[in-house]
Amino acid sequence: MLDPQLTQKLTPIFQDVFDRDDLVLTPELSSSDVEEWDSLSNIRLFVAIEQEFGVRFTTDEITALNNVGELADLMTRKGI
């Protein structure tokens, strides 16, 4: 279960980055579920989140991410 507040903030970013209105965030959602989610748009996703929330991700955090649930945990750890 994703934190509803965080989901509300992340959904428009995902929809914008991948240009998909129908994208619904679940903890299990990963790059293999979204056609547009490749290694380069993954960078765009992280940059968009960094800009929106004023945080910064490390190399490990960007490269090791597997799904939306892990992203949510990561953001909670960063105090968002």
């Binding site: 290694s39 380069l40 960078i43 765009r44 940059v47 960094e50 800009q51 490390t58 190399t59 960007i62 490269t63």
Partner: peptide, 13 residues
């Protein structure tokens, strides 16, 4: 970090 990960020459923003 972005250079190392994806060979981007400058900050993506």
């Amino acid at each position: 970090a972005l250079w190392n990960i994806a060979k981007l020459s400058f900050g993506q923003s």
